[in-house]
Design a protein around this nucleic acid. Sequence first.
DNA 1: TATTGTTATACTCTATAACTATA
DNA 2: TATAGTTATAGAGTATAACAATA
Lengths: 145, 145
Amino acid sequence: MGEWDQIDRARLVLSFERLFAVLRRLNLPQDISLTAASTLRTLELCGPQRLSDLAAREGVTQPAMTQLVARLEREHLVERQTDPSDGRVVLVAIASAGRELLRHRRAARGEKLAGLLAALSPEDRSAIMAALPALDRLSDLGSPS
Amino acid sequence: MGEWDQIDRARLVLSFERLFAVLRRLNLPQDISLTAASTLRTLELCGPQRLSDLAAREGVTQPAMTQLVARLEREHLVERQTDPSDGRVVLVAIASAGRELLRHRRAARGEKLAGLLAALSPEDRSAIMAALPALDRLSDLGSPS
DNA sequence: TATTGTTATACTCTATAACTATA
DNA sequence: TATAGTTATAGAGTATAACAATA
């Protein structure tokens, strides 16, 4: 944990800061909110979830998630289900329109990302692709299922 | 542009989607908005900017940037300057409190990121560090100065 | 007349506090 | 009494449309 690590850390933070800005700008003009997209992704990946679990996972309050689910439900992107074993619980599930939205969103973002990648050198492309497994494991640590 | 590229692209999009979520969760509890942080970063990097240029760069409307600058000014994170050569222009500059905020924010995010990195294998850490120059060039393409 | 920025208004998204329903 | 979720209210953040000031 010497001097080198500090320089390394600063470099990492600045590079990820810039990358984050780029990824944020991949959003479509009429895109849903970041929390909405992340919530749909969670529901797609993990199946129906309790409203309170969703709130905790996405880092928003329960009332905020109540409202978000209401909006997503209004647009038919998610469905509410009841828990037979506990009448207080609301289970939220992704609907087919929600899956379709995610598919379109990824396709659009993939197009834009591919355009950027295509402008890089083959060596840079390779370095990025080679880092993906490591980045996936970093994500595993950062957002535990 | 064969089959392999399509698989590659899908992989990239999903990995970056997850990474984006992780980076988003590095935000502090009492953090400023993503646009506010990005705007401060731009001002730190590029020096005083016109309000309209800032709006275009951050992908928000002119009225939205007017309000954001008003909030940042209220918290003494930025200062307004006049352009001697054109009375219509508002130049926005980062203030010392703004630089301090960025420094603290990066330190906090760096701590969290370092914590995640420390849990990875040395090989994964190396793969990520090795990809940073390529990611920087990707960012250069995605958010031209 | 064109450009730069602000004001007016409305909607989304979020938080905290108070409430309802179920356990 | 504790837990799951909703409602009430307020503020941040954003957009479009209309406006004011300067070029």
